[in-house]
Design a protein around this nucleic acid. Structure first.
Lengths: 167, 167
DNA sequence: GCGGACTTGTTTAAGTTTCAAGAAGAGCCT
DNA sequence: AGGCTCTTCTTGAAACTTAAACAAGTCCGC
C-alpha cells in the first residue's frame, strides 16, 4: 500500500479522463466480444487462438515455449497451462528441444492447423466488423502508431542497455 | 465451429495486420502493467479498483448492482463474485434496495474510500507514465475518438430500436 | 572441471472469470 | 387474483490466470 506523496498529484483532466474511460470500455468490450466469438466458433479463448496463429506462422510450425510466451506477451506459467489444454484438444504437441535439454517445442498439429483454417475467416470478419470497418484510414494509421508507442514503453527493456549491473 | 464461406475472405492487409498486433500487444501489456501495479499497491486487480472508483463517484457512494455492472462493462455474475470479495475486505457493503426487493446496493465503506484515497495518486501516475506521457495532444484526441467509436459499435444496442419483436 | 548464478519449463494452490441454472420479486395482461 | 414473462441477483462448478516455488540444465569464471 502506497501513500500519496503530499498533495501534488497531477490528476487527469476531464478530457484525459474521457479518453481513458473510452479506452477501457472499448478494450474490455472488444476483448469480450472476440473471446465469445472464438469460444463459440473455435472452442477456445482469444489468447489460445493467438498461440495457434503464432505457431502456424513459425518455421516448421513449432516454437520454443519461451519464444512463444514472449511473442504472445504472456508468462511462461500461463503458457504451460495453455499448451497443456491445447494438447488435450490435440491441436498442439510437445517435443523435446534437440539443442537444449531443458527446452520444449510446442508444435502445431495438423488438426490444430485445420481448426485455424476453418475458423480464421470468421475471426477476421469479427475483427473487421468491430474495428477496421468503423475507422477512417487516418484513424487506422493513428491507432497503429499510438499502440506501437505504448507497447515500446511497456516492453521489458533490452537487458544491458540501461541496467548498470557492472560498468 | 464455423466453416469458411468459400474463399472470399477479406484477409487483413499487412498494414492492418501490423496495426492489429500493435493493438493487442499494447493492450495486454498495459492491462498487465496496471494489474500488477494495483495488486501491489492496493491489493486488488484493476477491475475491482474500477468498481470502487465508480462507487466513490456515485451519489451517496452507492449503486445498484446492475448499474454498477453496466458501468464497468462486466456481467452481473462477475460483479456478484467481485463484490463478495470486496465485502470480505471490508471495502464494500451490501444493502437492500428500498424500492425493489430484488435489488441490492453496493455501498463503498469508509475503509474502501480510504484505500482509494491512498492509492489513487499512484495509479494515476502509472496511467500517465504508460499512456498520456507518451502521446502527443493530437494522438490523445485521436485515441479518444477511436475508442469511442469502437465502444459504441459494440455496446449492446438500445432495446426496441432494431428488435422487431412485435410490430 | 567445479561451483555459483541464471534459464527453462512445470507444478501447486489461491484467486478470478465464465457459464448455466435457479430463487425471488416485479410487471403486465385478462 | 391468477398466470405468464421478464428482471435482478446469486450460486456452484469448470475453466482460466497468477504467484511462488522447484527440478533440471546451461553458462561462465575461476
Amino acid at each position: 500500500m502506497k501513500t500519496a506523496p503530499a498533495e501534488d498529484t497531477r490528476w487527469l483532466t476531464d478530457e484525459e479522463q474521457r479518453t481513458w474511460r473510452a479506452y477501457m470500455h472499448a478494450v474490455t468490450l472488444l476483448e469480450d466480444h472476440l473471446d465469445r466469438q472464438l469460444q463459440r466458433d473455435a472452442g477456445m479463448p482469444h489468447v489460445y487462438y493467438g498461440l495457434l496463429v503464432q505457431l502456424a506462422e513459425a518455421p516448421r510450425r513449432r516454437m520454443r515455449m519461451t519464444e512463444l510466451a514472449i511473442g504472445a506477451k504472456i508468462t511462461r506459467s500461463r503458457l504451460s497451462h495453455a499448451v497443456a489444454r491445447l494438447e488435450k484438444n490435440g491441436w498442439v504437441r510437445r517435443e523435446n528441444c534437440p539443442s537444449d535439454k531443458r527446452g520444449q517445442l510446442a508444435v502445431l498439429t495438423d488438426e490444430g492447423y485445420g481448426v485455424l483454417a476453418r475458423t480464421a475467416p470468421g475471426h477476421v470478419a469479427a475483427v473487421r466488423q468491430a474495428l477496421f470497418d468503423r475507422l477512417t484510414p487516418e484513424q487506422q494509421k493513428s491507432l497503429g502508431e499510438i499502440m506501437s508507442v505504448i507497447s515500446e514503453g511497456l516492453q521489458p527493456k533490452e537487458a544491458g542497455a540501461d541496467l548498470p549491473w557492472l560498468r
